[in-house]
Design a protein around this nucleic acid. Structure first.
Lengths: 241, 241
DNA sequence: AAAAAAAACTGCGAAAAGGCAGTTTTTGAG
DNA sequence: CTCAAAAACTGCCTTTTCGCAGTTTTTTTT
């Protein structure tokens, strides 16, 4: 997984992560401070790299790997708000005037992160309208997704939310040999879908009996994507997410 | 309510709406196209000025009045995602490449709106890093609020969500003579809290019996803000919203 | 001011979701 | 490969939430 680590120059100039918002907005000779002060972080699977409530020091971009972003609620119950992959930004408001991270983040597999300090980032943003504009679009898109999720959790049944989650993982991470490329525990499915582990297990059982999915321990394959989509389609008047 | 309409020059230069993100980023002699092409819209109470799924033509800023922003789900059930007041932006992604509005918006009282086309806005954003930066901060803040709302709806009981809604309205719109400055129907409370009209009514009844609030038809006053805050405090580890 | 319409309210039974406790399967460490 | 710990699973009962149906109050219209 980390075989490429040594090839990754700590500078962005040689980085081939085309989805990175910073990388695609680099102007020759500009933002040297930002790039020079970038740090690369290596996280093992399960390692938490943003602590909820900790002092903000900057913003992360995933160079390689996957992570979950969450908030902790009552009785330590986790609400996963997003899964992130290569090129994506993590660390809301790791800039501006905010003091503390409102979210936590944990690597779901061995992961490489680029870390930028908020001071250098802020300077770059205020000097590069295109970069600010792209960041704005990123947040506007995330807001759209999140507001849709509010509706989803509020209006769908548990079964529908579990299906919605399966389709989201399928869409975002894809499959290999029919199996979803991101393996999660039942508890993590529950934490994203806003329900309990038992309900996810029960729903998976039903879907399996109905021939819509297959589960081999933690590896899940979806047999009939269209049937699942159809089951929740009545909720999605105007949607991408 | 509209007595000031005639005093509002259609230009931003004389506008005294200090909370307006456009107004506070005007640079002398710049963004003339944006300002000159601004349109002012007059909405009566109850009037819908953004249709869900309609073609995007731009973005609105409230000059005067209040509005609700919502998404329609199954069986036409509304999920209110936000209430907006003077100076606030409405019309997510009324710029960029999006084609359709993912949200609807309705005026909650007689309201004046400033409307900017997406072309002129985009031009201004790409030429003014500070404006883009401020817009980015707005969306990042809204994202924070929205992701917190996901957790709230997912983890709180109905009673707690209703209390959370009351406190949100109190915080955002304040009170006059003890009564909340925004009057909503029970159905609208339910649509924001993610429950049904009946449950809101039942909760209001209980809170009234317990001496925590008072209701005079649609006018609501909160007697004991601290007690309400205390009841939901265990959910809010790290929070503002 | 009266009538009509809309909103608020209440009780009750039904459905959905949750939570516990015990069993089986899978995973990961040595 | 073995064993211990973690995760997955199932049944059963409890709690929460929902939704209907009928009544009362408030608001709006004429």
């Amino acid at each position: 997984m980390h075989k490429n680590l040594k090839n990754h120059n700590s500078s962005c100039l040689d980085c081939n992560n085309i989805n990175c918002i910073i990388n695609s907005n680099l102007i020759k000779g500009n933002h040297l401070k930002l790039i020079e002060n970038k740090k690369i972080l290596k996280c093992k699977k399960g390692q938490q790299f943003i602590m909820e409530g900790a002092l903000v020091n900057g913003l992360f971009i995933i160079m390689e790997g996957k992570a979950k972003v969450f908030r902790t609620g009552i009785n330590g119950r986790e609400q996963i708000v997003r899964f992130a992959k290569e090129g994506e930004i993590i660390g809301h408001r790791g800039f501006g005037t905010e003091e503390y991270y409102p979210i936590g983040a944990i690597a779901l597999e061995d992961t490489l992160l680029c870390s930028f300090t908020k001071e250098h980032l802020q300077e770059a943003l205020l000097n590069n309208a295109k970069l600010s504009y792209d960041m704005m679009l990123f947040y506007a898109n995330e807001l759209n997704r999140s507001e849709n999720k509010v509706k989803t959790i509020s209006q769908m049944t548990v079964r529908e939310r579990v299906i919605d989650t399966l389709l989201y993982i399928n869409r975002k991470f894809g499959t290999t040999d029919g199996f979803l490329n991101l393996t999660l525990s039942r508890k993590e499915y529950a934490d994203y879908a806003g329900t309990t582990e038992e309900q996810v297990i029960r729903t998976f059982s039903s879907l399996k009996k109905e021939g819509l999915i297959n589960t081999r321990a933690r590896h899940i394959s979806i047999f009939d994507v269209d049937a699942l989509k159809a089951e929740i389609s009545q909720h999605n008047f105007f949607l991408d997410s």
